[in-house]
């Protein structure tokens, strides 16, 4: 009997150790996004240039939505790659930028300094950001012709990730 209880405890102990070991391969900071594979939430927002953009109206074309901010260091890191991709693919992919918790003047200064010609949308209430599940910028969403989010990059995009994800929505 005593031995049996000992064995039971040993099995429980093995489970606990296995559980702890299972945590090693993972970074607790990486997250799975619930929206990937689902239709993108629609939005109609005023652009900085005065026009109005509705996501639904863009259906039929692939769309890249980039949430960013002028105060965010990683956004400077990714900006060059974004700029290059926009120059290469602007003919068949729509690029949209949405500044997150940013001032209008700050965002404009950032764009003057680092360049960029794609449409920037105003989301003063953060509704669109919350609707997309944005929590820390930069976050970039890749939406296909049918309006479905195919991929999401949390953190700075690189030329390589941009290329694969663009191929996924445009290909």
């Amino acid at each position: 009997m005593k031995r049996l209880i000992g064995v039971v405890f040993l099995v429980i102990a093995a489970g606990v150790v296995a559980l702890l070991a299972s945590g090693f391969g993972r970074n607790p900071a990486t997250v799975r996004d619930p929206l990937v594979g689902h239709p993108a939430p629609d939005f109609t927002l005023a652009a900085y240039d005065g026009t109005t953009v509705s996501l639904r109206a863009l259906q039929g074309r692939p769309v890249v939505v980039n949430f960013w901010a002028s105060w965010c260091a990683d956004c400077k890191v990714e900006h060059r790659a974004l700029l290059q991709a926009w120059r290469a693919d602007r003919s068949h992919v729509v690029f949209l930028g949405i500044p997150y918790q940013d001032s209008r003047s700050g965002a404009a200064a950032f764009l003057r300094r680092y360049g960029g010609g794609w449409t920037q949308l105003r989301d003063p209430s953060q509704d669109t950001a919350i609707n997309f599940g944005v929590w820390g910028v930069p976050e970039t969403y890749f939406i296909d012709r049918h309006g479905v989010i195919r991929a999401k990059v949390t953190g700075p995009v690189t030329a390589a990730t941009l290329q694969t994800d663009l191929r996924e929505i445009a290909g």
Partner: peptide
Amino acid sequence: FLVSRYGNR
């Protein structure tokens, strides 16, 4: 609604 956007976390 928030869980559908951000997940259970």
